[in-house]
Design a protein around this nucleic acid. Sequence first.
DNA 1: AGGGCGATGTCAGTTGCTGCCATCACTCAC
DNA 2: GTGAGTGATGGCAGCAACTGACATCGCCCT
Lengths: 172, 172
Amino acid sequence: MELYSERGFAQTTVAEIAARAGLTERTFFRHFADKREVLFAGARSLQELLVSSVASAPDSVAPIDAIAGALAAAGAVLQERGEYAKQRQAIIAANTELQERELIKLASLASALAEALRERGVKEPAASLTAEAGIAVFKIAFERWAAETDKQDLPRLIRDSLEELRAVTAGH
Amino acid sequence: MELYSERGFAQTTVAEIAARAGLTERTFFRHFADKREVLFAGARSLQELLVSSVASAPDSVAPIDAIAGALAAAGAVLQERGEYAKQRQAIIAANTELQERELIKLASLASALAEALRERGVKEPAASLTAEAGIAVFKIAFERWAAETDKQDLPRLIRDSLEELRAVTAGH
DNA sequence: AGGGCGATGTCAGTTGCTGCCATCACTCAC
DNA sequence: GTGAGTGATGGCAGCAACTGACATCGCCCT
């Protein structure tokens, strides 16, 4: 992260990263599948949080609200690491390859959420659509949160965005 | 496409592609930014179709329906090239890097659609949310269409998926 | 003491991609 | 028609991201 922030992702070489960490380039690739993956190491724990949050929601909660609750919980976690999350986002925003990686991580999250919904008995077109819609809401809320300098509440932004989506899909 | 289908994307070298095309490797990279971009050469024209479709919708049409109409039109075009579109999709589905590229192309489409909505006077959280929701609907409809062996109507699938999204966001 | 075992180092090799310069065909003004 | 541009291509050298194979080292366990 230091190197990526200082001179940019593309201008940072794996050899430099390894050197600063006191390791070999070869060792770097044993810990991270590729150069980008460094910034997404925490994705798995976030996914587990989301999935378990959906799974533990009461049966009475509608699918979309189970997703919204999980996303709000994840948002709260990200907000705690506010400084780090925003710096990370700035790095990603500055590089196309990193954006690609982030998008596929989000798609993977959507798949996991859809699977969690299926285990709640949600049928198939609905499960994927709900999950994808949730991720879309999260993306936009997170963008706004990361862009704003004043401290907005991320879970609140997420819930507001979902309301906006409801209004918008209803045909306005 | 021939080479990617025969031996897979990762196992195909740019030198091989260039050789089959009767060109030099160097020349290949003058036509395509990288090895993946070959499969996404048509993305620009699709984006233009979508944007102009949204722009030309009557003012009385709700934003979400303008998006849905554009997506259905794009779906009709893809359906004409059914054979090609499905083969292409199979190649992409078999390789992670290609999925990343596809996702960022879809994100770019969403941005363009959001911009088109803004020009119709839609305000900002709504424009992006509508566009992203539309892309989500399109993604899922297209997946189903490409997976099914029997001939389903893609524009129809898109509209049905939107209805499903409406039901699902409403809280069911 | 010795025998696994996991993490690391070393090295060579492939491949994607880029910069630089030369060549060649083609056009267009003069 | 001649020469100056212009655009597409080839050739070449080089960097950096990865990968595979093998050696080494520290550590635990018997």
